[in-house]
Design a protein around this nucleic acid. Structure first.
Lengths: 256, 256
DNA sequence: GAGTGGTCTAGACCACGAA
DNA sequence: TCGTGGTCTAGACCACTCT
């Protein structure tokens, strides 16, 4: 179709390969990204090595400095390199102990959970542990919500959530949407979660917990504690989840 | 010192506030980032809402379009917004079930581990599980390395690592650096880890494992399986770690 | 003072989506 | 055809580090 245009473009363009003909071409900066990633991968660039200056790379790869900057910014963003202002850029440590963890209590039971049931909603005086987690004085009240998640007709997750109580909060069970209660409360009070933290432990089921899961005492359970914070880093909600059974695994990925 | 310079600068600069006087000032794009983050936080911008066009923001905030782009690129990178080429940018789902997990077996015991000991190095025929994890045929050999991590004079982590065996591999214990063996092997064979995966489970200590930790059967242990892959997504190494004790927690953070 | 990265400008062309 | 985001150019000034 536009073969004439291709020529026109190649004419217009000074030296480098900006022409985008009928087939797709990678952006200039991406080529540099790939080049540097490859050099790191084969060990030509080792942790601590300095990256040539932007001006050098700009000349070497026949790129505009901004393209070089963009490439390096991407690499920095992904942790491949780091930069010291006024000095230069350096290859980072490849010991990336930094994983991405996907955690969604509703999705963790394989493809789908089958049912979520609230088994208790109560306003209580928090114990010491809860006060500490929610940074509350112990004369305040909290709402405690116990929920279970079912999969294949068995309880696989038991969850206890604590939210600070405020006047007018809909605590009566029939007033609330079963599977979304804490989220609704937070939306209503305009509490916006800015950050979340997970803490992961192992435990052994005993007593009440075993009864909930309908298992013998002594089985392993995975314990995940989730805390949500607002923009001032104040805790908004604290949740402890107990996972039982084969579908227990959490998984995490590190991208290099 | 340079009061005169400040005036000179303000004269030179057309409208916007580019002058950097004696006190530090945020870059232009950062202000826009903060503005948009705040609007998302207070709910003025909700998931699915479209972001005004780059040209509009450029005019509205009196910024160069590249500054706007940079701000939006940062927001996109952090998952606040996403973009559809040719259409526009949109506020993303705040359901970030995407956490950052820091995992380093050497650092997980509080500040420092005190000692790492290799308790076994052997070349073995892999069982079915190991074959599957390392994508090996079962006529191949693997090196099995058992290590323990000590803290406060007690074994807190027990680790089993499987690496495919190749000729000339230094399997004799005295030939190797105790705490870094698998890493050295991989460096020698130029096996470059490109990605890693973690899988986290709960278990109960029994038999040999209890003996290693010097505990009674029935205590909870956290099980973390780590697999490293090369650039073609072939498994290079598979490690299973058992954590015991109070210092067991892994933690993860979601940034919004 | 020279070199580096960080930021910014005022233009430009492209591919894409929608009307 | 028009508006959008994606990419790029050829300059510029700044703060920082090193010598």
């Amino acid at each position: 179709m536009n073969f004439a245009l291709v020529d026109e473009q190649t004419m217009k363009i000074p030296i480098n390969s900006r022409q985008k003909s009928t087939f797709k071409i990678l952006p200039d900066y991406q080529k540099l990204v790939d080049t540097i990633k490859a050099k790191i991968a084969i060990g030509e660039l080792k942790p601590g090595d300095s990256i040539r200056s932007e001006n050098f790379l700009s000349a070497e790869f026949d790129l505009n400095r901004l393209s070089v900057k963009k490439a390096l910014a991407l690499l920095e963003n992904e942790g491949y390199i780091f930069s010291i202002s006024g000095k230069g850029k350096y290859v980072g440590q490849n010991n990336s102990n930094h994983y991405e963890l996907f955690f969604d209590e509703l999705l963790i039971l394989g493809e789908k959970y089958e049912e979520v049931k609230i088994i208790e909603v109560n306003v209580i005086r928090p114990n010491h542990e809860v006060c500490e987690h929610l940074k509350l004085q112990n004369n305040k009240f909290v709402v405690r919500i116990k929920r279970v998640y079912l999969n294949e007709n068995r309880i696989k997750i038991f969850e206890i959530t604590y939210v600070p109580y405020y006047r007018g909060m809909p605590v009566v069970e029939r007033e609330i949407n079963y599977s979304e209660f804490p989220e609704k409360v937070m939306a209503k009070k305009k509490m916006n979660t800015i950050s979340k933290k997970l803490s992961i432990k192992a435990g052994v089921a005993k007593g009440a917990l075993s009864k909930i899961f309908e298992i013998e005492d002594g089985e392993a359970v995975l314990i995940v504690e989730q805390k949500k914070f607002d923009e001032n880093n104040n805790p908004l909600i604290w949740t402890r989840l107990f996972f039982y059974g084969e579908v227990n695994g959490l998984s995490a990925v590190a991208s290099f």
